[in-house]
Amino acid sequence: MEEVDSANILGEPDMNDVDDQEEEVYYASVPASKLQPRAVVSMARWNNEMGIAEVVVQKGTFSKTTGIVRSGKLYYSIEEVLFLVEIGALLLLDESDTGLSLEDIYVKMSGGKYKFCWEEFRAYRQLKSLGYIVGRHGIPWSMKGAKSNCESIPSQGFPESDKVLNLESEEIRSVIGLFNEMQINKVRPVFNVYLPNSKFRKSSPGDPSFVLCFTRGYPPSKVELEALEGQCGSIPLKFCNVEQGRVSFFSFDTVELPVLP
């Protein structure tokens, strides 16, 4: 699986090492990229209005676990685009089919126009590099496999037609609107994360292994935890903290200590 391969070459330094090992810090020069140029490169066209990219040439196996399918078309979100471009698996075209450099894309993202969150991307990149399957919480992988379980929006099967595609992108936008509302409450469920699985299917993704949540500034309060737990039912939650360039994941799990003899 390509995702697994990329884990070896793109592995981030071990953030969670309990030993007191210092990370490698380079003084003299930054080592050259270990990423190999890829022979097979997909292409996607950026849609400025929707803030997502439509895949126009699909190569390799990334599409099995990346992007959402709507009316037979594959769309990549911003973080998916950025991740794939960073590892050289995707060429992003602008609306006039001109290829965009990585710098062009960073500039685009930094503008604040596309609800892009660098901290979320950092977590996304780390998990993807390790082969985890990461989708947006609340946005079904495909309308076929859409399940209401742990999704923020009720979703139903849509007949496939071009007209419906537009409706669906409305739906995508309304979902993003939902996220914005949650941001006011500081805590927001952002990604559905699945363990590395070569048999993963977008049409029947099953329940995620956990929902990755982000907070604004502070760890989740008891009230926030309980509200989110109610929302996500039996699916475990994890919380991401990206600070000083480090991505950390924490579980705040309800437990029940046994009554001992």
Binding site: G11, D14, M15, N16, Q126, L127, L130, Y132, K222, L225, K238, S248, F249, F250, S251, F252, D253, T254, V255, E256, L257
Partner: peptide, 11 residues
């Protein structure tokens, strides 16, 4: 209410 806080290591 009992809750554990643990660090999760994706690696």
């Amino acid at each position: 209410k009992e809750r554990t806080i643990t660090r999760w290591n994706p690696e």
